[in-house]
């Protein structure tokens, strides 16, 4: 009787290698619980990159420094992030700049009460650090620059935001950092469909809320609903 022993060797080896492969996969499945990097609620937020302006100078932004890796749900100690994607020439961004600034100073605990939501006492939840990522949308008339980003943040200078002087935008100067995303790197990484878009990020870097998934809910209401308070 003729038998092909060579085929047996390869079959035997193939089975052993596949068994080893599946042992490795089972080991990984049992010992790890990976979280997808993305920008939907429950995903791990991608890191924001670029030069940031804090009111006095431009520096390399390090999102990691804002995160608390060992944060657990309900812990009021860790600081949250509210990330705004905006364009200094986008009419909606210019109009909402006042509300964003008022929310920022309240949730960053820079003001004892909210300026437009009367009846709100001192914020007793965790610090929510606001960060703006300023991009340049591919729309005619939306040319921006670092000077324009500075002018928008500080409400100063002679730059033009949405056809008017940046000093005329609503609200006061913003107390938070602006990242230069003129090249749209962050916007593409975060798959932002349009501006303004907001993302509330937990201290451990997980996206807790997005304006795109909750179009009817305002930033203020989302922070009040999601963050732990009264600790």
């Amino acid at each position: 009787m003729k038998t092909n022993t060579e085929a047996d060797v390869r079959t035997d080896t193939g089975i052993k290698v596949m068994a080893l492969f599946f042992v490795a996969i089972i080991f990984l499945a049992l010992t790890t619980d990976p979280i997808k990097v993305g920008t939907k609620e429950g995903d791990r937020a991608p890191l924001l990159e670029g030069k940031a302006y804090n009111g006095s100078s431009w520096y390399e932004f390090d999102m990691d420094s804002y995160l608390t890796k060992n944060w657990t749900a309900g812990d009021a100690e860790g600081q949250w992030l509210l990330i705004e994607f905006m364009d200094t020439d986008c009419p909606f961004c210019v109009r909402s700049a006042g509300d964003v600034g008022f929310d920022a100073e309240y949730f960053m605990k820079l003001q004892p009460s909210h300026r437009t939501n009367s009846g709100m006492g001192p914020w007793d939840g965790p610090v929510v650090n606001f960060i703006a990522s300023a991009t340049e949308l591919d729309i005619p008339g939306h040319e921006t620059s670092r000077d324009e980003i500075k002018a928008f943040r500080d409400k100063s200078g002679e730059e033009v935001c949405d056809g008017k002087s940046c000093t005329e935008r609503s609200g006061d100067a913003h107390p938070f950092v602006y990242i230069d995303d003129i090249d749209q790197d962050n916007m593409k990484e975060w798959k932002v469909p349009g501006t303004p878009a907001y993302f509330l990020v937990q201290p451990d870097g997980i996206v807790a809320w997005t304006s795109t998934e909750n179009a009817q809910e305002k930033v203020f209401d989302a922070i009040m609903r999601i963050t732990p308070q009264g600790a």
Partner: peptide, 20 residues
């Protein structure tokens, strides 16, 4: 090489959990 590849994937997964 196979084991070190498994190890790097394990590290990637652990990092995505938020671990160091």
């Amino acid at each position: 090489g196979f084991v070190v590849s498994v190890h790097t994937l394990w590290i990637s997964n652990k990092i995505s959990e938020g671990g160091n």
